[in-house]
Simulated assay, not measured.
Amino acid sequence: MKGELKGLLKEIISITIGILIALYINNWNEDRKDSNYITNISASIHKELSETREDIDKKIVQQRMLIDTLNFYRKDDQMSLDKVITKAKGIFIPSIRINSWKAIANSKIELMDYSTVSTLADIEEQKELLKIKSEKLLDYLFANYRKTGEEQKEFMQILMSEIISTETFLKESIDKIIKEGKSLEK
């Protein structure tokens, strides 16, 4: 009976050790997969944010040119808003790319550093705010595109300035992530 008990105990210990080793290997493998995922998604997020930042820089220059053109023709009652916009070569709004962020936010957000998650969430909110401000600008322009008054031109300058302020905040948030150059991993 003692011999059977010893044999059974040895079997239980060897099975337990085998299970523990299998669990350790499985956890190690999952950690490795998560690390690879974060590395890849981090590179993708950084690429999108770099492209977004470049686009914002280009569009702000064009938007300031529109503001200057509006200011130049502010008192000219022969120049309607649509003519001023044509002179300035149009209205430009940057494209804010955050697809990779949305992908990880919907799946493995717990693997990311909290401050980075917070900054990326701010970028997403500012993207929505920029969209709203842009829509307001277009609504205003649609209702007033033939107007030539100084007040209409000044109000459009204000709307454009508001868009630029949102883009500037976006740039600062993007720079916070890009310049730190850190991984998004915890």
Rank of each mutant, 00 (worst) to 15 (best):
M1D: 10
K2C: 12
K2N: 15
G3V: 04
K6C: 05
K6W: 09
K6M: 07
L9K: 07
E11P: 08
I13A: 07
I13Q: 07
S14G: 05
I15L: 07
I15P: 03
I15D: 12
T16E: 08
I17V: 04
I19K: 02
L20W: 11
L20Y: 13
L20M: 11
L20K: 06
A22C: 08
W28K: 15
E30H: 08
R32E: 11
R32M: 13
S35P: 05
S35K: 11
S35C: 08
I38P: 00
T39H: 15
N40L: 09
S42H: 00
A43H: 09
S44P: 02
I45F: 00
H46K: 12
K47N: 14
E48T: 02
S50K: 09
S50V: 01
T52I: 00
E54M: 10
E54L: 11
E54F: 13
I56N: 04
K58T: 14
K59V: 05
Q62D: 14
Q62A: 14
M65F: 15
I67E: 12
D68I: 04
D68G: 04
T69H: 06
N71A: 12
Y73L: 04
Y73A: 03
Y73Q: 00
K75W: 10
D76W: 13
Q78K: 13
M79E: 10
M79W: 06
M79I: 10
S80Q: 03
S80E: 07
L81T: 02
K83R: 15
K83L: 15
K83P: 10
V84H: 07
V84F: 01
T86N: 06
A88C: 07
A88Y: 06
K89I: 06
K89S: 13
K89M: 11
G90V: 01
I91K: 03
I91C: 03
P94L: 02
P94V: 02
S95H: 13
R97D: 07
I98D: 08
I98N: 05
N99G: 12
N99W: 10
W101H: 02
K102R: 13
A105P: 01
N106W: 09
I109M: 11
L111I: 00
M112L: 12
M112Y: 07
D113S: 06
D113T: 10
D113I: 05
Y114P: 04
T116P: 04
A121Q: 14
A121V: 11
D122Q: 08
I123G: 00
E124S: 01
E124N: 01
K127E: 07
L129D: 11
L130S: 08
I132Q: 06
S134F: 02
S134W: 00
E135L: 00
K136C: 03
L137C: 00
L137A: 02
L138W: 01
L138F: 06
L138M: 09
Y140A: 00
Y140R: 01
F142T: 06
F142L: 10
F142P: 00
N144Q: 09
Y145V: 05
T148L: 01
E151D: 15
Q152G: 11
K153S: 02
E154D: 14
F155I: 05
M156F: 04
L159H: 03
S161I: 03
I164L: 00
I164A: 01
T166L: 10
T168Y: 09
F169G: 07
F169W: 13
I174L: 03
I174C: 02
I174G: 02
D175H: 09
I177C: 00
K179C: 12
K179A: 14
K179W: 14
E180V: 01
K182Q: 12
K182E: 14
S183E: 10
L184S: 02
L184K: 01
K186D: 13
